[in-house]
Computed example of a mutant assay.
Amino acid sequence: MRRVLITGASRGIGRAVALAFAERGAAVAVHYASQHVDAAETLRLLPGTGHTKICADLGDPEAAREMVARTVHDLGGIDVLVNNAATAPSAETRHAVADVSYEDWQRNWRRMVDVNLLGAANVTYCVAQHLIERGSPGSIVNIGSRGAFRGEPDFSAYAASKAALHAFGQSMAVSLASHGISVTSVAPGFVATERQSPKLAGPQGEELRAQSPFGRVGTPEEVAAAVLYLASPEAAWSSGTVLDVNGASYLRT
């Protein structure tokens, strides 16, 4: 049985990833920061046994270390890490440079970098140390973003943190290969999560669907399928890759 830690798994992409692993017999640790009710629902939905949920603010380095230690205790070890937790774009985190105060600019940059990049880096360090000490192979999958490549004018800190996460993952792929640990990233486009339902149902919905030639947006389950593959032993030779999952809505050269 594989043991999987998924950060930011209370709903959306994280929940879909948790379900996908549990449906294939894995024991899953559901991390959440504040959405206790949603995390409990994710845990309830998981088939099988041996799952756990853990609350931690990944913007706090010590909380990140304690989360990994508790996961190792609860699951008996960690074989797969999915770095999904992030401070995401929203009306509250919008920080277009032309119309945001310097104080709000600083606040948004600090929070997004602390969680999206440094949080993922700290959790990766702790899980990698655990795997190295065990002498076991493992997989780390980062959830990045299409925005890392195309830019996010109203959420520059988000785009920058995700671009840095991709680069961090590639550095770790080289660093950890000799220990049998693969590191990859997924870069989703717009995904139909619960949080995005109002946008899709409102005036923006048509424009968002038109971004892809498929005429729709992605689903959490499609991102989860990509994560499952990249975390599999068969994908070890893909270590270092950044896989676009955006329905051809943005093509990199």
Rank of each mutant, 00 (worst) to 15 (best):
R15F: 04
I54H: 12
V113L: 11
L165C: 03
D79Q: 08
C55F: 11
H130G: 02
Q196Y: 13
L131V: 02
L243N: 06
G169C: 01
F155T: 06
Y250L: 07
L251Q: 14
R110E: 12
A64T: 07
S178P: 12
Q35I: 05
V186Q: 02
V186R: 05
T184S: 15
V4K: 04
E206A: 13
S238W: 11
L118K: 13
A9D: 05
V245T: 01
A86N: 00
M172G: 03
S90D: 06
A201K: 14
G144W: 08
S10I: 13
D104E: 14
G218H: 01
D60S: 07
L131Q: 05
R11G: 08
A121V: 10
P213V: 04
G76Y: 05
V223P: 07
D114Y: 09
S161C: 05
A121I: 11
L230V: 02
E194F: 13
L176D: 09
A225N: 01
A22H: 09
R216D: 11
D154E: 12
D57R: 04
S182C: 03
S239W: 01
Q211M: 15
L200P: 09
R70D: 13
G205A: 09
D57Y: 11
P220R: 03
V100F: 09
H130Y: 07
L230W: 03
T52N: 13
A96S: 14
E207P: 06
L251D: 00
V97A: 14
P137H: 03
L243P: 00
A20I: 10
I13T: 11
D244E: 15
E41K: 15
S178T: 14
E133F: 09
S185E: 01
A96N: 14
T52P: 03
P137W: 07
E66W: 12
I78P: 00
M67R: 04
T193P: 12
L251V: 15
V127Q: 02
K53V: 08
I78M: 03
T52I: 06
L243S: 07
G12I: 06
S232K: 00
S239Q: 00
R195A: 15
V82L: 10
Q106C: 12
L208M: 15
Q196E: 15
P47Y: 04
E62W: 08
Y125T: 10
A40H: 13
I6A: 03
Y250R: 10
F190R: 11
H51K: 01
V217K: 09
A85V: 03
Y125D: 11
F190D: 11
L58S: 03
R15S: 03
Q211A: 09
V183G: 08
E133I: 03
A225P: 12
P188H: 01
E62H: 15
D154P: 04
L200H: 12
A33S: 14
P203S: 14
G169I: 11
P220T: 09
A18S: 06
V100Q: 03
